[in-house]
């Protein structure tokens, strides 16, 4: 470098540029990430996916994962302080969480709520993410279409199972209910049959897992049949008042019933007999 003092000076100057440290970190991260990306897909768990021609999905899913999930769940889905490990949760969990908008979570609250999907969340993207997470350590897979077809289930049997297993949190028609520490059992009105199945299979958030030995796939389909038939039912008695039981009924009795009758009483007694004139 001797004799080229000018360029040395310029290199030194650039080295001391305020943005230089970020450039170095970015380079290091890029090398690390790139190297990792080259090394990771060689893991043996991906072999099955490669064999079945889904290696592309896994790779694509991994990219999506790094972009949208890794900040909480870790670069290898190993989990961090702010998100659990996803090794072994299975494709069903991914599909449930991402297709309902719960994941990626917008903020670390007691519970991630259902929300509108981000633009990048397409069925294909979910497939890819699911394939990636499935490749990490297996877990419950997504149900086939006929496994969640309400028409093939028996709603009456499903109703019994639903009452025995679900309503203590989700309310008798699945309108939802409160749990402790800010958590809650969400309403089932917006859940697709597949999502209901996946929720039972994977036990998202505060929900327990109802695996296939506790409730068989056929029974799950019966429950789906019951849930979907009851929620699509037109209330025969008029407005359902939110279908949450006597609380809204009491409100209506007081706010509508008593108010109307008080108004009627005021009206009746306000009509004074006019004195003869």
């Amino acid at each position: 470098m001797i004799g080229t003092g000018r360029s040395v000076n310029s290199i030194t100057a650039r080295r001391r540029h305020p943005l230089a440290r970020f450039a170095v970190v970015a380079l290091a991260l890029g090398l690390l990430g790139g190297g990792y990306a080259l090394a990771a897909p060689t893991g043996s768990t991906a072999d099955a996916a490669v064999a079945s021609g889904k290696a592309d999905d896994v790779a694509q899913g991994k990219d999506l994962f790094i972009a949208h999930c890794a900040s909480c769940h870790g670069l290898n889905a190993e989990g961090t302080k702010s998100g659990p490990t996803l090794v072994g949760v299975g494709a069903a969990a991914v599909d449930f969480q991402v297709s309902s908008g719960r994941m990626p979570a917008s903020d670390p609250g007691a519970q991630a709520p259902r929300k509108p999907l981000d633009e990048w969340v397409t069925p294909q993207a979910i497939d890819q993410l699911a394939a990636y997470v499935q490749s990490l350590g297996g877990g419950p897979t997504r149900p086939a279409a006929e496994q969640v077809d309400p028409a093939k289930g028996d709603p009456a049997k499903g109703g019994e199972l639903f009452r025995a297993n679900c309503i203590q949190c989700h309310n008798f028609v699945g309108a939802g209910g409160a749990l402790t520490y800010g958590k809650y059992a969400p309403s089932l009105n917006e859940s697709s049959p597949t999502q209901i199945y996946e929720a039972m299979a994977t036990g998202p958030q505060a929900m327990p897992v109802f695996n296939d030995s506790t409730i068989t796939p056929d029974q799950k389909r019966d429950m789906i049949a019951y849930i979907t038939s009851v929620r699509s039912q037109v209330d025969p008695g008029g407005s359902g008042l939110g279908r949450i039981g006597p609380v809204t009924e009491g409100l209506v009795a007081w706010i509508a019933g008593i108010s109307l009758l008080v108004l009627a009483a005021i009206w009746i007694t306000a009509k004074k007999r006019q004195a003869h004139s």
Binding site: F172, G237, G245, E249
Partner: peptide
């Protein structure tokens, strides 16, 4: 206004209980 939709509650068995079980006002 629908009140006490018993068909939605299902038959009573002592083992079952629903969230939002409330008495009348």
């Amino acid at each position: 206004a629908q009140i006490n939709p018993i068909w939605l509650f299902g038959p009573y068995t002592p083992a079952d209980i629903s969230a939002g079980s409330q008495p009348d006002w």
